[in-house]
Structure formats: structure tokens, C-alpha cells
Design a protein around this nucleic acid. Structure first.
Lengths: 347, 347
DNA sequence: CTGAAAGCGCTTACAG
DNA sequence: CTGAAAGCGCTTACAG
């Protein structure tokens, strides 16, 4: 099927007329400044002039050069978003909503996916700084110290999200990971489970992992239960990691009757492993996740999990950041976006 | 947990020293032009000067202003990528690899997710044009005619991917959707299935859907089999849609012994529905997907599917586009990235 | 190997 | 309501 035809010249179809405000202005008989006003502050123009300019813009197919605008106004209208991963739909849904909402406010979104690697995240953020972003959205607080300084020193609004924190760079819009897992673990205790493990990936340098772990431990401590069963796994948030964690916990603590996982992906991987091993869920073992991705609802048995309202959160972050950039934000420095425990069949 | 503390002033930590090439130049005792050369063409500088400039850049923490560079060089080093969705990991994996590779080549990636809505995609692309991108990566060929014209008229390299096409805008790097589903359907026939349905979402305006449908039909025609069982579903590529499609096909064609789905998500949704309805897979019904997402490998029974090597494809698109932008691409106008039929338990 | 001049396409800050 | 001048921070295209 591979055609060996060589590619053509670029720009054949191009009109090759670099349309600037100058061209619009000339056609209408005004100066470029008036064209600029038609785009930014149309209310300052006479209706007749505005109408003719708009017509010329449409006819000539003019799109203003953002780089020029960014340079002269010192306002890039660009927002940098740093997420740990794109592969997990909790983040891709969040970004889709965030990006669409920011677009409505007139901002372009640049997404950096660090793959849970703070060093790579730092390099990405350092590079994005060249665009002189108008604002940042950072998932979590576990960036390197240098990366956090770089963002803060940019002197523009920052929204930290997907977490709570006592030392925000600027604004925080998110949920309490600790409270969410605390509630989930307490619910399991209420439902009669007594030997509850915790499964996660990576290490406690990650703020969300650390907080979720803390919530689990706190709930067990309050119930005067020991909290021995915890299991981690190097590598990434994969289904396979969930299976490994399950096996690790059951090997060392066969009495375990429930496992709280730090993500839906891990929980689903464990659930699949239960199918393979013939472990009945929830009769032999209860499993809970975190995120409420679509598969959580559709898998058999359906997964009990935490929903963190990620689409709402994306819109909220966008709206708050846009207001803050515009100097119109008057709300608190920290907004709790909440969460919901969703009980299904797996626990 | 929500603190009612008001947010602080922005830029408190900011050094408030707008570091430009001017500042670096002054400190070293050269002109900004020499600093510019240190970044773009270091081989043209004396080693001593280069060393001192690099030192000053590091000490002052200088990042060049990309907007200024973009404006003066008419080279934004920005690549626009348009995908139908971020939620499906086939695309998020592709983008992660594409974006990381483009970053290595010195390009910033702007991602637009259209949610399978060509009208929205057109608006997104039109907006991105303001950044004067250096290149485009477009998934599929089903953009609106106007959107395709906008990209072509930008006069920069374009890579169309995730497909083959006879009328490329510029370059094509992708796989044949028709061949892939043809091979899958033929395999099912080889494995003894005789009444094979096809499940998809949306309509035949989408080039990938159309091609996959064609592949299925062709395989059945070659085997002198009728191809009655096809079922679509409005809405999006969700697990729920997969379940609906399954039910629709089985209701109208109870003799169906295999269903080829146009995506893993649909296939997995159908598989879950089989669990709920007590339909044994593959004994009562075989199911195949498209994409080979992680869950395909881990689900029970594991899913037979098509792997389209999306990470390789992302890197390939990035490398080809970067070469083409640099005027160094000498390969064919169309590169076949291939696919693999992955047989697992579900068929 | 390095520099002085001009300009990229906008917006700011005055003026009228 | 509209315009003329200056400048944002780089790079191009000469010069030497």
C-alpha cells in the first residue's frame, strides 16, 4: 500500500498573501490601530467602521498573529497545564474540560504530561516558560522545588489542583485526597470489613499518594485496628501493577478481606486478577478504586470507588484561573471541589 | 477544609527583572546578537565567548522569549495536533510519544481534541492558526473542507495520520484501516466463525469508520457471505455503546457468532454485557476490538484485537514532520506504519 | 568571529 | 471615535 511517490512542494495552495492588520486597514481605509480595536475593544468603534472591518476580516480570512500580540501586550493568553499522565482518563477528561473552558475565555492551553517524573516535568515547564504563559494549572504539589520556583517567579496566577495544600503557590482548587480515602476506608469498616489493605504505586514523595495513604491509616487508627497490609510496586499505574499488588498483599496477609486502591486502574487490574485466580469479589475480597473512570461502572462486578468530579473540576479551574488572570477573582485562596463515595458491587 | 483566606498578591516571589538577551549581553560585554547566536548557531562563536554567555544565561536564569523569536524569524516552532479524543488511550499514548519526540526536536505541541465533532475541530484549528504553527498533525481525513483548506493554506508541512489516503494534503504516516479490519475478519473466518457482525459508532462520514466497515464487508464478500449484521449507535465511543450495539445485533441476528468492533472500547463494553447476560465468550460469541489498549490484554477473557503500534506511530510522525519542516525529508509522501492482529481468548 | 541597522506584526500610551 | 509614534524582544541580512 505504501506509495513511493515523493511529497510535493509545500504551500502550493497557499495564497502566499501574508494578511496582517495592515491589509485589512488598507481595504477599509483606516489604520491598523483601528483594526486592532475592532478585535479587542469593539465597543470603542463606530458601528459603521466596525461593520466594514469585520466584513474585510471575513473576506480576507484574517487571523491575528498571536506572537505579535503576545510580544507587544506582554500577555500571551496561553495557559500551561502540567499533568502526571494523559493515559489515565481521569486526567484526559479533566484536560478536555479545562482546555475547552479556557478556550472560551480566550486562552490557548499547552499541556505537559510528565509521566509521573518530576525531573521531566521540570524540564517541560522550564521550556514552556519561553512562551511567557499567562497562568499555570499544576496537578498536585510534588513538582521539584526548582520547578515550583520557576512557576512562582513567572509572576502570574497559578492554580494547584487535584489536592489540598497548606502552602499554595497561589490558588488551590481541588479535593482532599486524605479525606476521600478516609471516608472510603471508614465506609468499608461500616460495611463489615475488618482487615483492610492499601495498594498504591510509586513512593510517598507523591503528595496525592501520601495523602491517600494517610487517610487509610487514620481510619484504621480510629477504629483501633492495626494497619499492616500495604503494598507498593515500582513502575506505573498499570492494570498489571494492580494484579501484582493484590498478589503481594494476599501472600503476606491472607486474612485481608478488603483492599483500598489508590487508583481505578490498579483496582481494575486487581479485579481482573481475581477473575483469573477464582477469587470472588466481594465475597472473598472487597476492592475499591479511586477516580470513577467509565470502566468502573461497566466492569463485572462494578467497582466501588471515589468520584472526584473531574469534569466539573476542569471547568472550575479554568473559570477561577481566567478570573484571576483578569484580576477579577475575589473568592478564597482555596476551593474545595469535593468528592463522592460511589458504592457498587465490588465492596 | 476550605480555607476562607483570600489569595495573596501575584508575583510576590518574582524577581521582577525581565531578563532579555540584552541583560545577558551586557553582563558578558557583547551585543544581543551574539547571545542569539549562542543559542541558535553556537558553532559560529569563539569558545571563550560562548562559554561566558552560557554561564551568564545559567546564572541569570534566562529563557528566550519564544513569541519574539517566532515573530522575527517567522518560525514559531509550534506544531498543532488535532485528535478526535483524549479519553481513549490509543490517542493519549500517541500524543505523549508525539509530543515528547517533537519536544526533542525543539517544537512545542498544541493539542486540540475535537470530541469527534468536525465543526468544533474547525474552530479549534482556526484559532490555533493565530500562533502561525510550523506544522500540523491531523488524525484522519474527515476534517471539514474549510478546516483542510485552512491548514493547507498555512503553507507548512502537514502529516495526516491514523489512516491512508489517496488525496493527502502533504504527507501521510499511518496504517490502512480497511486492510486491518479485512485481515481481522478473514482471520475470524479462518478460525471457523461464519456469521460475523460489525459494530461501530457514529456514521460513515468518518474516514476510519468507513474504511473499517469496508474491510469487513470485503472479507465477507470474498467468502461469498452476506453481510447483514451491522449496527451503529449514536453518541460516543463508550463502553455503554458497545453493550447497546451487541444487544442490537443479537436481537436482529441471533445466529451471529462473532462481532468485529471498530474500537476496543466498544468491544470491551460488549464483553462486559456478555458477562452480565451470561453469554460465553468466545464459545457463544466471539468479540474483537481495535487498538489494543491495556485493558484488552488484562480483561477476562483477554481481547483479540488489532494493534496499530501507536507509540511508534507517534514517534514516526514527529520525526518525519520535524525533518519535513527542516526541509530534510526525502522519503515517500506516504509511509505505512503497519498493524498487527493480536489473537487472544475472545475469538 | 562579532556588530549595527532594520523589521517581524501587533499594542500601549498619548493626542486630537 | 480615530490616528501617529514608539516599542515589545528577538532574528535577518549585511558589513567588517
Amino acid at each position: 500500500m505504501s506509495k513511493q511517490r515523493a511529497p510535493g512542494k509545500i504551500g502550493r495552495n497557499s495564497k502566499n498573501s501574508p494578511i496582517r492588520m495592515r491589509e485589512i486597514a488598507d481595504r477599509v481605509g483606516v489604520t491598523p490601530m483601528t483594526v486592532s480595536r475592532a478585535l479587542r475593544t469593539p465597543e470603542k468603534l463606530s458601528e459603521a467602521t466596525l461593520h466594514r472591518i469585520k466584513k474585510a476580516i471575513k473576506e480576507l480570512g484574517f487571523t491575528p498573529n498571536y506572537a505579535a500580540g503576545s510580544l507587544s501586550s506582554k500577555n500571551s493568553r496561553m495557559v500551561v497545564v502540567s499533568v502526571p499522565s494523559l493515559a489515565n482518563s481521569v486526567f484526559s477528561d479533566f484536560i478536555e474540560e479545562l482546555s475547552a473552558s479556557l478556550n472560551l475565555h480566550g486562552y490557548t492551553t499547552i499541556v505537559g504530561s510528565s509521566n509521573y517524573d518530576p525531573a521531566y516535568e521540570e524540564r517541560l515547564l522550564a521550556g514552556f516558560l519561553g512562551w511567557r504563559p499567562s497562568g499555570f494549572v499544576l496537578v498536585g504539589t510534588s513538582q521539584t522545588a526548582k520547578a515550583r520556583r520557576l512557576c512562582a517567579d513567572a509572576g502570574v496566577p497559578i492554580v494547584e489542583t487535584w489536592c489540598h495544600t497548606r502552602k499554595p503557590l497561589d490558588l488551590v482548587v481541588g479535593f482532599s485526597n486524605c479525606d476521600a480515602i478516609y471516608e472510603m476506608t471508614k465506609s468499608l469498616l461500616d460495611w463489615g470489613y475488618g482487615s483492610i489493605g492499601f495498594g498504591y504505586v510509586g513512593d510517598m514523595k507523591n503528595d496525592r499518594t501520601r495523602e491517600r495513604h494517610r487517610g487509610w491509616k487514620r481510619a484504621l487508627a480510629e477504629a483501633a485496628l492495626a494497619a499492616p497490609q500495604t503494598q507498593t510496586q515500582g513502575g506505573s499505574f498499570s492494570l498489571g501493577a494492580g494484579a501484582s499488588i493484590l498478589n503481594g498483599i494476599l501472600e503476606r496477609h491472607p486474612e485481608t478481606d478488603a483492599i483500598v486502591f489508590g487508583s481505578d486502574t490498579l483496582a481494575l487490574g486487581a479485579l481482573m486478577e481475581c477473575h483469573r485466580r477464582g477469587i470472588r469479589v466481594p465475597d472473598d475480597l472487597a476492592i475499591t478504586g479511586f477516580g470513577d473512570i467509565e470502566m468502573a461502572r461497566e466492569v463485572v462486578p462494578a467497582l466501588t470507588t471515589v468520584n472526584t468530579l473531574r469534569r466539573n473540576l476542569g471547568k472550575l479551574c479554568a473559570d477561577v484561573l481566567a478570573q484571576r488572570i483578569g484580576g477579577k477573582y475575589t473568592g478564597p485562596a482555596m476551593i474545595d471541589s469535593g468528592f463522592q463515595i460511589i458504592r457498587r458491587e465490588s465492596a
